[in-house]
Design a protein around this nucleic acid. Structure first.
Length: 508
RNA sequence: CGGGCUGUGGCUCAGCUUGGUAGAGCGCUUCGUUCGGGACGAAGAGGCCGCGGGUUCGAAUCCCGCCAGCCCGACCA
């Protein structure tokens, strides 16, 4: 029987979206549920999320934030308080209208007409308004500020075109909501959080991201200023991996968050909000994985090392299993990144090759095979997920235990370097309209190949230009990057003068 | 919500044009041989053919309606 050359079909270069779906499935991360647009996150995928939560939650705590929890349901009238906010979210809200069911006389159930709510509730698409209502009660004086609260929760946005992790009707995220005495302090908070997001993405998810500000067209509904981190994934599209919003006094006015200032005057508070979601899982997948499946950064892998006992003969089984457990215990006593190494021993009675391939597809950084011959020689067979699937190295047992942490750290650094090199390779300065259009136009239009990337090009600052380019090419401004030097140039479309290049790309 | 396509064991699909008692591969169970890289053989389990109606002696197959999913457009973390 002839095996496919790669564990995942199709390959990335053949059909990237389909490849993505197959990797999600092969890695056992999640599956579609019977409810359209909603996903079941399976233990391996949820383990990733738990690690992300633990890490980022720690970063928030260190910077003075505390967790709280606000209701899932929001009175319809709350959403209506901020005009731009309504505009942005009204189209995708789930609405609760009844509080009881009754028999419909045909063996089924229906909402009881007598139990209709006087005011419908919406399922939160985000919580600015309901949290604002609480803050309005909590804040009287400048002495009550700042309020620095975060919540981990689910939200619902009724999406038309769901894709596992990237865009689902229900998703998990954290949303931070802060209120401050001055615009400066709120802006500082917005910057602080963006910095945390960048660090989290780079140091833990191995994602090199561009930080910057969104153009008006891409701004959060109701925000004065939206900052973001943008990553490039392997089809060279951009993906917004996290956003931090300066809300000015828009939501404070809508929710009546007022306080008496140091000067004794009544003033509106200045608020921020910011979030990252389970979309990060999809981002990590698309940034690092290959044609054999998922590749996980060790710092977030639910298991960093898996031990596969090779017990061909029943009589060697007990000895091999015992040795595997012993090795696991020794490895767990070691550290990587200053934390205990996580190790799993897979004793399931299935074919050795099949088992190996399962873990390859799940993206475990290091696989250890331990068989009878190793016991005799005191070695282990080490395979790394960032090398070929059949490459393995026989290493003295003690030596591997001693250097396991260092290997994981090197693995993590390698992923980041590879992703950064890929991004840099596909980030180009473009100065003419012709070149710009050529860059973003695939050679085969019916089945577009992977093309494009990040284009750094000048822009006159007008939304009309953005709109035109979006219409022509489906390309948008991902951000106005912070690190870009000022330079004189001409708008890519109009030729008008421009002071700075912005990042253009197709996006998720 | 508009346009195109598809609904058949857990999964991927054939069968439908030309109606005649449900098929394959993978997966699953058991037994045996294997086992240091997706093993092989044998025997099994599993399906109101998306739902409802119609035509017919007879419908997975033809007709009508509905529902769901996928792809393409407008929206989005």
């Amino acid at each position: 029987m002839s095996q496919p050359q790669t564990a995942i079909t199709p390959r990335r270069d053949e059909d990237f979206p389909e490849w993505y779906q197959q990797v999600v499935r092969a890695a056992d991360l999640a599956e579609n549920s019977d409810v359209r647009g909603c996903m079941v996150i399976k233990p391996w995928g949820y383990g990733l999320w738990e690690n992300m939560q633990r890490i980022f939650d720690g970063m928030l705590k260190e910077t003075g934030h505390r967790n709280a929890y606000f209701p899932l349901f929001i009175p319809l009238s709350y959403l209506a308080k901020e005009a731009a906010h309504v505009e942005g979210f009204a189209k995708e809200c789930a609405v609760v209208t009844h509080h009881r069911l009754e028999a419909d006389g045909r063996g089924g159930l229906r909402p009881a007409p007598a139990a209709e709510l006087t005011e419908p509730l919406i399922v939160r698409p985000t919580s600015e308004t309901i949290i604002g209502a609480s803050y309005a009660k909590w804040v009287q004086s400048y002495r009550d500020l700042p309020i620095l609260i975060n919540q981990w929760c689910n939200v619902v946005r009724w999406e038309m075109r769901p894709r596992l992790f990237l865009r689902t009707a229900e998703f998990l995220w954290q949303e931070g909501h802060t209120a401050h005495e001055s615009a400066e302090q709120a802006l500082q908070e917005t910057d602080l959080i963006l910095g945390l997001y960048e660090k989290f993405a780079r140091d833990y998810l191995a994602l090199p991201v561009i930080t910057g500000e969104k153009s008006e067209a891409e701004r959060f509904p109701g925000a004065v200023k939206t900052l973001c981190i943008e990553a490039m994934v392997q089809d060279r599209k951009a993906i917004q991996a996290g956003t931090s919003h300066f809300l000015g006094q828009n939501f404070a006015k809508a929710s009546e968050i007022k306080f008496q200032s140091r000067e004794g005057k009544e003033e509106y508070a200045w608020t921020t909000s910011w979030g990252v979601s389970t979309r990060l899982i999809g981002t990590v997948l698309m940034a690092h994985s290959d044609d054999d499946g998922l590749i996980l950064p060790p710092r977030i892998a639910p298991a960093q090392i898996v031990i596969l006992p090779i017990a061909p003969k029943p009589e060697t089984r007990d000895a091999v299993f015992a040795a595997a457990d012993k090795l696991a215990a020794e490895l767990r006593a070691q550290t990587a990144f200053g934390e205990k190494i996580s190790v799993e021993v897979d004793k399931r009675d299935i074919g050795g090759g099949t088992k190996s391939w399962e873990w390859i597809k799940k993206g475990v950084p290091i696989r250890i095979e331990l068989g009878p011959r190793d016991l005799e020689k005191g070695t282990v067979a080490v395979a790394r997920r960032d090398r070929g699937p059949k490459e393995k190295e026989f290493v003295p047992n003690a030596e591997f235990v001693a250097k396991a942490g260092a290997v994981l750290e090197e693995f993590q650094a390698g992923l980041l370097a590879r992703a950064a090199a890929y991004r840099d390779q596909h980030t180009v300065k473009i100065d003419t309209k012709e070149e710009f259009y050529a860059f973003f136009t695939p050679k085969s239009s019916d089945k577009p190949e992977i093309h494009g990337g990040f284009a750094l090009a000048h822009w006159n600052g007008s939304s009309a230009v953005e709109e035109k380019i979006k219409e022509d090419l489906k390309v948008t401004i991902r951000c106005i990057p912070f690190n870009a030097p000022e330079e004189d140039g001409k708008c890519i479309l109009t030729g008008e003068p421009s002071k700075r290049r912005v990042v253009w790309a197709k996006s998720y």
